[in-house]
Simulated assay, not measured.
Amino acid sequence: MLISLAEYAQMHGKEVSGIRRKCINGGFKTAQKIGRNWVIDSEEPLVDQRVTSGKYRNWRKEKKE
Rank of each mutant, 00 (worst) to 15 (best):
K14M: 15
S17Q: 10
I3V: 14
N37W: 12
D48L: 07
G54N: 02
G35W: 05
S53E: 02
R20Q: 12
E43W: 04
M11Y: 11
S17H: 13
T52G: 02
Q32L: 11
T52H: 09
K55V: 02
L46F: 15
K33L: 13
D41S: 13
S53N: 08
G18Q: 00
Y56R: 09
A9G: 06
Q49S: 07
A31F: 04
P45H: 05
A31K: 01
G18C: 04
E7M: 06
E65A: 11
R21W: 12
N58T: 02
A6Q: 14
G26I: 05
G26C: 07
P45A: 01
R50C: 08
R57T: 08
I3H: 01
T30C: 03
V39K: 12
G13Y: 01
H12C: 02
Q32I: 12
R36H: 09
T52I: 09
K63M: 13
A6R: 15
K33H: 06
L46E: 02
Q32G: 09
G35L: 08
Y56T: 06
I34G: 04
I40P: 00
R57G: 03
K14R: 15
R20A: 09
G13S: 08
A6S: 14
G26A: 07
F28N: 01
D48W: 06
W38H: 03
K14W: 06
R20D: 02
N58K: 14
S42P: 00
E62I: 11
A9E: 01
T52S: 09
Q10I: 01
I3E: 06
F28A: 05
G54R: 03
K29R: 15
C23T: 02
Q32S: 11
R57N: 07
K22Q: 13
S42R: 12
K29W: 02
Q10A: 15
T30N: 05
G26R: 03
L5V: 14
R57Q: 10
W38L: 00
T52K: 15
E7C: 05
V51M: 14
I19K: 00
G35I: 08
R60V: 09
